[in-house]
């Protein structure tokens, strides 16, 4: 099967991301592109605007700790049952990142507006939350269709440059199987340049040929670059494929407590090629 759409590695995908890019990443329950994340750190990307859809975990903590992030837009940074995001906390305390605290449905709605390429979208809730106090880009208007006074929040659309995702497999034409996780498609479609996708494998099938797989497919039209990365979500899990590597999260938690420990972590798990070359 011809695979001229396929890039050679996650590092080739990372090379497509310029400094200052706005990138959207999914939460840990989906396909988190951890190998591409390590490749971004290896490439030394700077000043990213990271949009977490709607939250993130280890991926954000690694990018922040490695100094790749200038702006963080998220509804939460959490490892769930698996520890504390020390590098996120340290960067906030030191004032090293610009924080744009949000709430999950606001990020979903703003990405949806980006997908439609409309300038803004209204959303219920939020009024009275201090989130609104700190988000000068969110505005409150009076619902123009209401009879009485009905304040409602307007959110500017989010159009990231790229969405970064990891998925179980691509078909021979580069269509990506994402299953029920439609957020991944929304992110990819909202992205100006599309999705940078790693997959566990390429299968010699046509996902669009069957109704049973077409609805769970992100068509190659929305893909800006794709590469194979086996266990590309590790140490985060990939639903139905592999579980979270708890032992690794414990190790990370111990090391990332300090900046020095975090640097050791990067040397061991992110920059091994540099070490091999030295």
């Amino acid at each position: 099967m011809s695979q001229d759409w396929l890039n050679g590695s996650a590092d080739e995908l990372a090379a497509l991301v310029p400094d200052g890019a706005r990138i959207a990443v999914p939460h840990d329950g989906l396909g988190v592109a951890m190998e591409t994340t390590r490749a971004l750190i290896r490439r030394g990307v700077r000043d990213l605007h990271l949009v977490c859809v709607p939250v993130s975990g280890l991926q954000a903590d690694l990018l922040i700790g490695a100094g790749c992030v200038r702006t963080l837009e998220t509804s939460a940074i959490s490892f769930g049952e698996y520890g504390t995001p020390h590098r996120f906390q340290a960067a906030l305390k030191a004032g090293r990142i610009r924080m744009m605290d949000a709430t999950c449905p606001a990020i979903h709605a703003a990405i949806e507006a980006g997908r439609k390429n409309i300038p803004f979208i209204p959303l219920r809730g939020i009024i009275g939350s201090d989130l609104l106090v700190h988000r000068a880009d969110w505005k409150v208007i009076d619902n123009p269709f209401a009879e009485g006074h009905d304040p409602i929040v307007l959110l500017p659309a989010i159009r990231p440059d790229f969405a970064l995702i990891h998925a179980p497999y691509a078909d021979r034409a580069g269509n990506i199987f994402i299953g029920r996780e439609r957020d991944l498609a929304t992110m990819a479609q909202a992205a100006l340049r599309g999705a940078l996708v790693t997959v566990e494998e390429v299968r010699d099938v046509d996902l669009l040929a069957s109704e049973e797989t077409a609805a769970g497919t992100l068509p190659a039209l929305y893909v800006a670059g794709a590469a194979v990365a086996a266990r590309g979500a590790w140490p985060v899990g990939l639903p139905g494929r592999y579980e979270v590597d708890e032992a690794h999260f414990r190790r990370y938690g111990e090391l990332a407590r300090s900046a020095d420990g975090f640097a050791l972590y990067l040397d061991e798990f992110v920059h091994p090629r540099r070490q091999a070359a030295e």
Binding site: P54, A76, I77, T103, P105, L123, R124, G125
Partner: peptide, 15 residues
């Protein structure tokens, strides 16, 4: 945002 104690964030609560 430079709190001495930072928790994960607001998640979907504000909605």
């Amino acid at each position: 945002p430079q709190n001495t104690v930072r928790w994960p964030g607001s998640f979907g609560s504000a909605y």
